[in-house]
Design a protein around this nucleic acid. Structure first.
Lengths: 357, 357
DNA sequence: ACCATTTACTTAATCGGTTAAGTAAATAAA
DNA sequence: TTTATTTACTTAACCGATTAAGTAAATGGT
């Protein structure tokens, strides 16, 4: 049995919440008539401590539910055993799947993964990354916002902490980047629409500064070019953050006489708008308009009609990014930029591009 | 201009990443011939420091990109300015919306919100909560896993740190709980199916131990009872984690002669399976089977057919939960259990329950 | 029996901040 | 002029853990 009489004297500053106060090594030491050093070593199974003492320490620690304070150790060791994952949002299948991949690897490596959301705000990204220069985390995995168009905050953080970018990478930063074959996919999506009989193909552009966006559009233009079509600049439709404006924009495009008969959505959330606008205007998918979307949504198969998608290896990209980061955290002198990887996405043909209807 | 000559002598232990090493108050103090105390006070705009000195400190701090180490302050102040958000997953519209609500409030209060995912693993929940007893965070907002059926880990954490539950609450813990009117919604959904002409209504049950689940089912049973129907136990279909098994289960149910002609999905992810099974078996929604789902998905309107939903005030529930937690963190003696709130959900009728087709 | 080594600890410094208490010089009050 | 107060700092303790260095006692070798 553990005698707690002495310990009660130690509990101070009790708020309504910490009825018991946090147990510290100091308390264990006092209770056991040992130095804090001995207790610390016992907990870490040091050879300097006798088996009997170790047993006493472990038993008391368990009885009192001792949990080491992570910040104390981190401060001393200059190592937080924590990584940060900085992503635009989580209400997106791609990011939530990638996150699962990252988390799985982080847990397997005994690390904490702190998730930070920028909500596509460049200001928030800057504030966040500045904070991460503090030593709060040992490494960072991130996808930049749609609006990230200067890179000093990234460069600055990259000097302090190993970083790995995934999907929405920043080309200007010299470090590891996990991407998918965006240009090729833009090409494939467009070629698939052409093959399905589309004459006028539009593409929704999410952000000028985003490398994945421009690559997808490059692929789109390349496909048009190879098929002897003008790269009509009017067919690149800017898609912003204001959902009302976006809807209005789409409505306008599809109301025109020479409206597109095929459209590529570069991110999944554009799909709902496309479907709704087509419904409203009485345009049938795929008969009047064919749709391909970059998407990882699980609902694509039960949409009306089911949606042809370019699906990214989201989970795998997360796993890879995390794997490389932990490799860097273990081996001190890893050249991260040499670890960049491109993982291919896959085209899934469904009814939204069917030409046989 | 800042003279950095002295400072270079301080940089030690440079890894490939920390080319510059982290700037500390000690370095600033040395460079300015001040004590660390003076620098600390200057940075916190103390009246004890002259305006001239404050200016010198602030300028050097800015020039060297000084970022205070959060763990050092937290340790001393016994306050981390950080809360934890523990949720089952993020690939779910309800949780991601709630998360946005929580985050918005956290940022407004100058706090960090650390997101932890349990992936519905009870073991992970226990490990996580144990870690959170360390002092890592000042408060916790959480939704328990589907499998959480013992509560010692929750009770234990609740002694150390203020907790607020939302949606998937634990009734046994005496603290604030933000819920929606689950029983009423189960009732409404069922009544709506009855009103739409359904004779045999099934409900998908996600977990026996989850209070929201049992409440929804109670509402369902109540509605059946009030309409003079037997509460057929066979109509409560257990939905587990194995997606292949779930699909098989559903297929079996809908193949039977007296198959249901109405079904309530208690969580949104069940919807895809229902739609796919109906497609496969040639059952038309809503003519042969009517579907209501608890869902916050943005795609419900473009499904085939569009889905009738019970939609929870997810963002608002997150905001409320966070608001109460911060109220508790500010006022020391707030009785959290008195802050529990129930926010109503809303029924949106769409085509999956249409009776006029 | 005597020195060497091993065992099982303790002491004290450290991580990077914050702050109570102390102090010397300048200014104000009597 | 002398004492009181204010100003602008510094010193030192502290948060909770880790660990290099120190030490007393037990054990071992010859």
């Amino acid at each position: 049995m553990v005698n707690l009489t002495k310990l009660t004297k130690l509990s101070i500053n009790q708020s309504i919440f910490s009825k018991m106060g946090n147990i510290t090594i100091k308390m264990l030491a006092k209770e056991l008539n040992l130095s804090t050093a001995a207790v610390s070593k016992a907990l870490r199974d040091s050879h300097e401590i006798s088996e009997g003492t170790k047993k006493r320490v472990l038993e008391l620690a368990a009885a009192l539910n001792y949990v080491p304070h992570p910040y104390a150790g981190s401060l001393r060791e200059k190592k937080s055993n924590t990584i940060a994952v900085v992503i635009p949002e989580v209400a997106d299948s791609f990011f939530s799947l990638a996150l699962n991949g990252i988390e799985a690897v982080a847990i397997a490596n005994g690390y904490h993964a702190l998730i930070y959301l920028t909500h596509e705000s460049f200001e928030r990204e800057k504030t966040l990354l500045k904070d991460l220069e503090s030593g709060r985390v040992d490494g960072v995995i991130m996808s930049v916002t749609m609006k990230t168009d200067t890179f000093d905050h990234l460069k600055s953080l990259n000097k302090m902490v190993p970083m790995v970018f995934f999907d929405r990478v920043c080309e200007e930063i010299d470090t590891a980047k996990i991407t998918t074959n965006d240009e090729e996919c833009g090409y494939q999506a467009t070629q698939h629409l052409i093959d399905s009989g589309c004459k006028k193909i539009a593409i929704l552009s999410i952000s000028e500064s985003l490398s994945i966006n421009s690559k997808r559009i490059q692929g789109y233009q390349q496909a048009l070019l190879e098929n002897g079509r003008e790269g009509d600049p009017a067919s690149i439709i800017d898609y912003g953050e204001d959902s009302v404006e976006n809807f209005e924009q789409l409505r306008k495009v599809f109301r025109e006489v020479d409206r597109p008969d095929g459209i590529v959505a570069t991110v999944s959330k554009m799909t709902t708008d496309i479907y709704l606008v087509c419904m409203e205007l009485g345009l049938r998918i795929p008969q009047d308009v064919k749709v391909v979307s970059f998407s990882n949504d699980s609902t694509v198969a039960i949409l009306n009609p089911s949606l042809t998608t370019i699906t990214q290896p989201a989970f795998e990209m997360g796993e890879l990014a995390a794997g490389i980061l932990f490799k860097a955290l273990k081996k001190k002198y890893l050249v991260l930029s040499e670890e960049s990887t491109v993982v291919p996405s896959q085209l899934f043909v469904r009814n939204s591009t069917s030409s046989s209807v």
